[in-house]
Design a protein around this nucleic acid. Sequence first.
DNA 1: AATCTATGTGGTAATATTACCACATAGATG
DNA 2: CATCTATGTGGTAATATTACCACATAGATT
Lengths: 109, 109
Amino acid sequence: MVNEKTELRKKVAILKGLAHPVRLSIVEALADSEMCVCDIVEMFDFDRTTISKHLSLMKEIGILSDKKDGLKVYYSLRIRCLPSMLSCIEKVIEGNDPETVFIMECCGK
Amino acid sequence: MVNEKTELRKKVAILKGLAHPVRLSIVEALADSEMCVCDIVEMFDFDRTTISKHLSLMKEIGILSDKKDGLKVYYSLRIRCLPSMLSCIEKVIEGNDPETVFIMECCGK
DNA sequence: AATCTATGTGGTAATATTACCACATAGATG
DNA sequence: CATCTATGTGGTAATATTACCACATAGATT
């Protein structure tokens, strides 16, 4: 049995880990395949070290895992259900007419 | 077609809205049924106005909707798939042995 | 071994988030 | 209508997050 408080803290940590435009974009990019830091850095206009810190953070939280190969480090999703989880939110957003920001139904199950 | 940047911002906003222990607890409590502010406040040791601000924030983001009835205000989930979305994260956490903080598989699909 | 390449870390200034207090208000009740 | 009850808002101090710079390191290349 998992401690309630601890479980809540872990869930919040994961959500916080996803709640940043750079980090969420990385997670989405990793949905299909792993990428090296060099390629991930290319995606953004931010400093290389900024991206590196976002990756370290997500690794520490448990969202990503890394794998070294020569000079390069490859990151991949450690929580595989994330893309489908996020697609729930996407459907909510995409389903909107421009006026209403969010609708009430999604996932259609 | 939804603007990519805007969509990302909205997704991040929702995730941020969930990424706080008080707010996530509220969302979980609202999974089953709506609640008035007075009852939600009872759940926590924080100041009443702190809870009120968390509710306002989630309403603004679109996570919650409210409904007035006399003096009381009832909040409910506006994004209904949230509980099942969060259960994905829960399974990841619960599936752990105490040593490993996160596992790689979840949702069992 | 000197150098280069890919990546990571410590420090820090700028910015955002959070929690509480003081105060405001709408609707019920005496 | 005076008051009470449930709720919300503005302001602010404490804290957390973020992005960059300077620097460090491991492994490849010359």
